[in-house]
Design a protein around this nucleic acid. Structure first.
Lengths: 355, 355
DNA sequence: GTGAAAGCGCTAACAT
DNA sequence: ATGTTAGCGCTTTCAC
């Protein structure tokens, strides 16, 4: 093949031209440029960056200088492709704009960043179909692991996740049969404990204000069941709000319940924000809390001790959930011991003034 | 070189073995597998996915069937590398756990997802140094564009951003000299407008509760300056809280100010949450709002009309900001007209019952 | 309309 | 300790 070298050279020239164009377009300095400048092979630069301990002191120095001078920024797309390690974790949350979930993802993000990981965000909008689509989209990015809020996924979503063969951690709920790992607490146990707590305090009339969120609904059902087990007869006055807890709906639904003839008792709200709304409606009507209307929230958010009166609620450790999830995933990608597959963080009832 | 083919074959065999191992390890189906199955070249499969209009009807069908059967999930790392288009936008926010910023990023995320884009999240923790580090980290992923909350960046950060030569949109503030594009409103104008509004309502004594956030501080300063321009003499009673608005600090700082001898007047809070805290402290002390203590917040969050009394505040369109930012970035990556480089969304004062 | 070939920028064996 | 080599899985000219 006498023309082989010729054609090859041709191709090279073309490539060089294209590269020059790229450079101009801002696509930047490459490993190779740095290597040339430092007078070493590209592989050595790669080592200097990823395993500096394997490079001689002075070589390392030369390389670092070259990196500084050129302003080199490693292309993690290329690195991820070559190493099959994207250093990316996906995080799927029902809503970005829900503070309690955001706190978990925040502590997760901070922890993984310490290890050079970044987070690819997906929002499922409290819907299993959306979750399935978002999970598929996100997996195309080949994350090394994924954290999901909630344990109720569509069949297709479960299959996709399993097929990806990456570590998965589900949080904010618990189950003996996680996809892979789960870190959370039992919503049924919360519902029952709240019922028992209120009953124990002597309340005999109850109400429920619950957001249309899978986990909130579980708590509400368990609350209702436990009450009837405790001998509370009759229909439980109940209001459902859109998912994503808001003060606004708490206040409105309480107003509606009151107008519809609800005459006081103890109300369990599926979030502190909802509970705060209930409190405000009570205040607006001049109802005495907790004498005429008792309220218990859920979450123990930072403002709970500062409502007036101070809100009784259920505490869960959202920050720890994110932290442990991060550590479980990091352990898995580093082939270390990730600990138990099922971690129950529990919860506690924080008694303040409203119930 | 008689042994050339031999060695090559050797290498091939090794590669094949490695690939098989990969497959087993879950690294999945590739374009090539799909192509084989559909009896076409890999390039055709690529076209079928990215430019289906360029592929014959029946070929397309065969390919789609093969994709379904194999459960093929395109590797976007590889795609991004090959095309120098990552289909990723980076979003840098001061805190994930601040609802007002989250709402902007939420609408941003939803809009770009419609165009197949995903969001890489970075948190700057209200610090310029952290922002610089996070921006550098995120740029390694070669996002096609970036949205930043705020316009105050370190010099290094600005340089890095400029060197990346990607579209940048700054939001939540405004400046005649954006890095690239800016969509927001003037915090100085807000501060002045609030001062004028309260002065116009007849208030002559004032207070300020402000979070330690660059933008909140600007509003506070402009408020103070405008008051003195209006002839309000003397030191302005003022309390500063940590960044990230919380009801808790609003209530506490108000309590401290009251204890320190602040005897009422109109208080401007840098967020609705802070204002709500102030309202609660007033309630706890039995102060009449707005007669003995008037309050104005900032943000017009969803709960503002539902506090008791209903909160007077400043409305800004957080959702629209995210939406427009998304559209500006999408326009730029598609070489379409991104519109004005500086977009002032303005604000309005919403009069309710507290001031 | 489809295929062949050449890379995208990096990492990881392997060899020295 | 460093260099050589062969990919990672895709996209994109260029030919046909």
């Amino acid at each position: 093949m006498p023309d082989m070298p010729y054609r090859k050279k041709d191709a090279r020239a073309r490539t060089a031209r294209r590269r020059a164009a790229r450079r101009q377009a801002g696509h930047g300095v490459t490993l190779e440029n740095v290597a040339e400048r430092a007078g070493v092979a590209p592989a050595t630069v790669s080592r200097a960056i990823n395993h500096p301990e394997k490079v001689a002191r002075d070589t390392l120095e030369r390389i670092n200088r070259a990196i500084e001078q050129t302003g080199y920024l490693p292309n993690l797309l290329a690195g991820g492709l070559a190493s099959s390690r994207s250093r990316l974790f996906a995080a799927i949350m029902p809503s970005i704009a829900n503070l309690v979930y955001a706190e978990t993802i925040q502590s997760f993000t901070r922890r993984i960043r310490e290890n050079g990981y970044q987070v690819l965000l997906g929002e499922s909008g409290y819907s299993q179909e959306e979750e399935e689509a978002v999970v598929a989209a996100v997996l195309g990015r080949r994350p090394d692991g994924i954290i999901l809020i909630g344990i109720n996924h569509s069949l297709g979503c479960r299959r996709t996740l399993l097929a990806a063969k990456i570590p998965v951690v589900e949080v904010w709920d618990i189950t003996p049969t996680p996809l892979d790992m789960v870190i959370g607490y039992s919503h049924e146990a919360v519902g029952r404990a709240v019922a028992a707590y209120l009953h124990g305090k002597g309340y005999r009339r109850f109400g429920l204000v619950v957001a249309g969120d899978a986990r909130a609904i579980k708590r509400g059902q368990a609350f209702e069941e436990e009450l009837s087990r405790l001998g509370i007869a009759g229909e439980l006055p109940k209001a459902v709000t859109p998912p994503g807890s808001s003060l606004q709906y708490g206040r409105r639904r309480m107003a509606e319940m009151l107008d519809a003839g609800f005459t006081g008792g103890a109300v369990f709200c599926s979030s502190d924000r909802l509970a705060h709304g209930v409190l405000i409606e009570a205040q607006a009507r001049g109802l005495k809390v907790p004498e005429e209307l008792a309220v218990i929230g859920f979450g123990d958010q930072d403002f709970a001790p500062f409502t007036y009166p101070a809100l009784t609620t259920v505490r869960i450790d959202r920050v720890r959930m994110g932290l442990l999830a991060a550590e479980a995933l990091l352990a898995r990608v580093n082939d270390e011991d990730p600990g138990e597959a099922v971690v129950d963080l529990g919860f506690s009832i924080v008694e303040r003034e409203t119930a």
